[in-house]
Every structure is written in structure tokens, then in C-alpha cells.
């Protein structure tokens, strides 16, 4: 007799649990089916974090915000869009100086030069260097160093002043040079800190669509 009564009490809890579970999982399923969240991060497939500051374009310092350039509705194969190759570098770092002497001249000619690698109409490619301070205590930093670096290595793309490391901390930069390729919708297509099996230049060649020559 007592067992039956206990079963009946348990039945009330089981009934309630069933009702609430159906409501909970039906709601969760609806949310899962109608949204597809992409979280902000610094790995491939993540939405690029904030990147803003003053950039030196060779003539003046101007405010720049990477997110302002994104087209949220852009999808692969669709109309116009700008791909960004972001290089986090340090003007004092020898690996960055080597890169500025060797790989970058060839690549900036290929993508930004007078006779660039063809891309579809309305598809453009931009380079942005972000100058960070790896060793603020021992190395010298300042906007003049950025200007001198850009001039000395004849680099024809803008340089961002991030000597307070406000951006490099958000992007979790552990060493330089670090390269990222950002699609026009703001998603990271390649991040060298997590994948050193290929270079950003190889990824650009594969990812950025080719247009008529």
C-alpha cells in the first residue's frame, strides 16, 4: 500500500519533469535551428576581435577600425568585399625586418602593385601592419620608428600604432611576425599563431578568388 502511494507521488514529479523537459528542449531546438552563432576569437573560423587605432598611411595619422570595413552579409562567391592581410610586427624584431626585406616586397607587388594578381570585380585586397611593443622596457618605440620602418623597407600599406599593446593583448599575440587573413565578413580565414604548416601567402592564393586577367 505504502509503495503505491510513493509511486503516485513520484508520478507527479515525473509528469512535471516530462512537461518541463519537453518545453525546455523544444525551445532550445528552436533557438539552435534559427541561430548560428560565431564567436569572437583569434583562430580560423572565429570573428575577428576589435582592431582599432591610428594608422600611418605615409602622409598622415588617421583613425582606423577594422570592424568598420566588414560586410556582415558577405558570403563566399558574392559581390564586392575587401580581404585583409594583418601582420602583427615589431619594428625592432629581426624576424619582422627579414620578412620586410624578403617575403613582403614580392607579395605587396603581387597583391597591391601596379599589375596585381587578378581578382573578381569589386574584390580587393588590403595589407595592414600592426606595430606592437614586444619589449617596451628595453627597445625603443614611437611613431617615428613606425614611419622610419615603413620608409626604410619601402612598404606601401598602412601601419597601425599599437605600442600600448591594447590590440595585441586582445589578439593574444605571443610573438612577431604573426599573420592573419580576414575575409570581407570579418571571419578569420587563417591565423599563423595556430597553424604554422603553411604561410599566409599560400592561404591568400587559395582563398581569394581569381578574376579575369
Amino acid at each position: 500500500m505504502q509503495r503505491r502511494n510513493i509511486s503516485n507521488e513520484a508520478g507527479a514529479r515525473a509528469d512535471g519533469m516530462l512537461m518541463v523537459s519537453v518545453l525546455f528542449f523544444a525551445t532550445l531546438a528552436y533557438i539552435a535551428l534559427t541561430t548560428s552563432p560565431v564567436y569572437t576569437g583569434v583562430g580560423a573560423g572565429d570573428r575577428a576581435p576589435e582592431l582599432q587605432g591610428e594608422v600611418w598611411d605615409g602622409n598622415s595619422w588617421t583613425a582606423f577600425n577594422l570592424h568598420d570595413t566588414f560586410d556582415e552579409d558577405w558570403i563566399e562567391g558574392s559581390g564586392e568585399g575587401t580581404w585583409y592581410m594583418i601582420e602583427f610586427m615589431d619594428t625592432n624584431c629581426s624576424a619582422c625586418q627579414n620578412s620586410a626585406m624578403n617575403s613582403i616586397p614580392e607579395q605587396q607587388d603581387k597583391w597591391l602593385g601596379d599589375n596585381p594578381r587578378p581578382t573578381p570585380t569589386n574584390t580587393t585586397v588590403e595589407f595592414l601592419a600592426v606595430s606592437i611593443a614586444l619589449h617596451p622596457e628595453s627597445w625603443s618605440y614611437g611613431q617615428q620608428e613606425i614611419k622610419d620602418f615603413k620608409t626604410d623597407y619601402n612598404q606601401n600599406f598602412p601601419f597601425m600604432d599599437d605600442h600600448d599593446n591594447s590590440n595585441s593583448e586582445v589578439w593574444d599575440i605571443g610573438g612577431t611576425p604573426s599573420y592573419f587573413l580576414i575575409a570581407p565578413n570579418g571571419l578569420i580565414e587563417f591565423a599563423s599563431p595556430e597553424d604554422n604548416s603553411k604561410t599566409v601567402w599560400d592561404v591568400m592564393e587559395n582563398k581569394i578568388p581569381r578574376g579575369d586577367a
Partner: peptide, 23 residues
Amino acid sequence: GMLAFALFMWLIISVAKEPTASW
């Protein structure tokens, strides 16, 4: 919030169905 209110609803429904139960 969903988990908390789902738990509230379960507690309320089960108490409403068996208000004299031992639990």
C-alpha cells in the same frame, strides 16, 4: 535563466499536482 525557470516550473508543477506528498 532557462535552466532556473525550468527548474522552478518543475518544482511548482509537482507541488501543485501532489501538495500532500512527502517531498
